[in-house]
Design a protein around this nucleic acid. Structure first.
Lengths: 104, 104
DNA sequence: ATAATATGCAGGTATTTACCTGCATGTCAA
DNA sequence: TTGACATGCAGGTAAATACCTGCATATTAT
């Protein structure tokens, strides 16, 4: 996984909205997705390209259409690498902070 | 939680490194953190400010020093909002994609 | 074949961002 | 008190980014 690409891809609200749209209905075309975004088709394409480079979206051509599918694997890896690690120490870290605020 | 701030904050490799450094040793000063980054102190400050605005880092002043602590709560919320949601349908989505690749 | 449709490609621009330098302020220790 | 140290603050710049317009290509339906 290219962590940087995944995080950068998730760092934009339009791209997160695209993932949300695909979550609601997987396999949509570029045109369908554009209907829900207030921007030109070409701009949406660029966002989808980034999502695809981050491997968060996979595409399949069907004739003149291009269907978009969510790939949840990178999100899982983000979870493993970033969330679970910190989650494990959540209480400990909060304890550190509390101690510090109390003047040790 | 301001999801956009959290995602934007995580979207930069330097800021992720800062969180890693704080994970290794919580409560470090600006100076200590700077030693591990190849950039000016002022640049690191800006990154830390963004992390603080995203509520991923909390700070405590001790004399002339400023101590930095990880706050894992937003990461947990990212997980709840973004990862778990997609995780639940992981197998289903992969099934959709497989079906599509096989020509339905 | 031809018109309509869906997407691809090549730029151009304004904003954001990630750095920097220079100087100011506040704190500690001798 | 004075020098050293830790951080704050105010810009300035180059690169990245998020939009756009215009035109080209490929597919479908009549």
């Amino acid at each position: 996984m290219d962590a940087d690409k995944v995080f950068k891809a998730l760092g934009d609200p339009t791209r997160r909205k695209l993932l949300d749209l695909l979550y609601e209905k997987n396999g949509q075309t570029l045109g369908q997705l554009c209907e829900h975004l207030g921007m030109a088709r070409q701009s949406a394409t660029q966002h989808l390209d980034l999502l695809e480079e981050a491997n968060l979206v996979s595409t399949v051509r069907r004739g003149r259409e291009k269907l978009h599918f969510i790939n949840p694997v990178p999100l899982h890896e983000v979870y493993e690498r970033w969330v679970r690690k910190f989650e494990r120490q959540r209480l400990d870290l909060l304890h550190d902070l509390k101690k510090e605020l109390e003047g040790e």
